[in-house]
Simulated scan of single mutants.
Amino acid sequence: MDLQLSGKTAVVTGGSKGIGLAVVRLLIEEGVRVVAASRRPTPELKETGATHVAVDLSTAEGTAELADRALRELGGIDLLINNVGVGDTEDMVQGAVTSLLDLPDDAWRHSLDLHFFSALRLSRAVLPSLVERRGTIVNVSSIGARLVGGGPIDYNVAKAALNALTKVVAEQYGDRGVRAVTVSPGPVSTGVWTDPDGFIARVAREQGLTHEGLVEQLKERMGASTGRLSTPEEVARLIVFAAAPNNITGADLLVDGGIVKSA
C-alpha cells in the first residue's frame, strides 16, 4: 500500500528506541527524510540512516535547537511526530507510587515539560513550515489520558493536556491545511514494560513484587480484549497511517488491545 509519503520530510522526537524508532524505520521505508531527536543516539537508530539531533526536549532551549537544526537539514517540515516520553524512569515511578498530596511540584513540572511543553514548543516552532506544506502533527499520547487516576498521575495529566493540544491545532489550523491527530497506545512491549530495570520492574520492587508478577497483575487488571501488549511496530503503523494524507483530524486513535471500553 502506497501511503503517498515518498519525498516528504519528518521530525520524530524520542526516535532512538521503542515506538519512536519503529516510526523512524517505517517512515524511511516510505521514502521520508527523517530527523530523529533524543538525548542520546542508539546503534539501532544509526542503522536507519536518519539524521540524529541530541537534545533535552524537556527544555525550551532543546526544542528550539531541534526545530532550527531540522529546518536547516530538511529545508522544510511536512510531518511532526511528537513521541518523546517517559524520560527518567525514576520520575515515572514517583508518579505511580506517590499520592496527590505527596507528589512534589518538581515532579509535575518535569512531567509537563517533557510530555506537554515539548510538543507545544516544537509545534509552534514548525507550524509556519507545516502551514506552507499543508503538513500534519501526530501527538503520541497514552490511554492514561483517559484513565488518569491509574497513575503515574503526573504523566497521565500531561498526556491529557497533550490530547487537548491536538484538538486546538486541528481547530485553529485546519482551514490552512494542517491536520493534527492523537495516537494513544496502551501497554507496549518496550523497555518500559520489559527491561529488568525499567518502569514496571522498578514499581514492582517498590511494592515488594516480582517484575513478572506485576506484569501479569497489570495485564489482568487492565483487561485487554486481546490479552496481550501491543508491539512498537503495531503502534508505529497507526502513527504513520495517521501522518499520511487523509481527512482525519482532531481525533484520538487508540491502539490498546481493547482496554478502553467506552467510545
Rank of each mutant, 00 (worst) to 15 (best):
V235Y: 01
F116Y: 15
F117A: 01
D106L: 10
D78I: 00
P185S: 04
A170Q: 04
V260M: 09
S142F: 10
E90P: 02
D68Y: 01
N247C: 08
L209I: 06
G87C: 05
A224E: 06
G95H: 06
E61W: 04
E206D: 11
Y173K: 08
V24I: 12
A170W: 01
H211I: 01
A125I: 13
G75K: 12
L101N: 08
I200A: 03
G20R: 01
L103W: 08
T166R: 00
G208C: 04
L71F: 00
D105T: 14
V157S: 07
V215W: 03
V84E: 07
F116N: 03
V168Y: 14
L66G: 05
G177F: 09
W108S: 12
R176N: 05
E29N: 14
P187Y: 09
I143S: 02
D105V: 14
T98E: 01
G149D: 12
T98R: 02
E216Q: 15
K46P: 00
H52M: 14
H211Y: 02
G15P: 03
G62Y: 00
V84N: 06
L147G: 08
G250I: 07
L127S: 06
D197P: 06
V97I: 15
V126N: 07
A236Q: 04
Y155A: 06
N82E: 10
G49H: 09
A37V: 13
A50Y: 00
V255P: 09
V168E: 13
G144P: 02
A263V: 13
L80I: 10
D106V: 13
R40F: 09
S189N: 11
G191Q: 11
V192F: 12
G20C: 07
E44T: 03
D175V: 02
E47Y: 02
